[in-house]
Amino acid sequence: MTDILSITILLMGAFFFLAGTAGLLRFPDTPGRLHALTKADNLGLGLICLGLAIHDGSLQGILLLVFIWLLAMFSATLSAFLIARWHETRRSEAEHD
């Protein structure tokens, strides 16, 4: 029963990753791509961690997975922020010229 649950959640996570990647490839501009990537990937990663946590079951495993999830969220936020800022600087420079 737990196996089916965890596999379902893992598949859902994989689907969100796929959707995020498709967005990255298909959206035309930087903010759009960031939008697709950050939203979908964070959800996908969360689902995958959840699925793995259900599969693993031990307290230590769950704590580690939560830790990994938080770290990944943190770095994703930061890199998305930096990319967005770089984009803004570039745009304002272009307008001034």
Binding site: F74, T77, L78, F81, L82, R85
Partner: peptide, 11 residues
């Protein structure tokens, strides 16, 4: 300095 760098480094 971008505002998010200091919290990044502290973590």
């Amino acid at each position: 300095s971008p505002p998010m760098l200091t919290p990044l480094l502290t973590v």
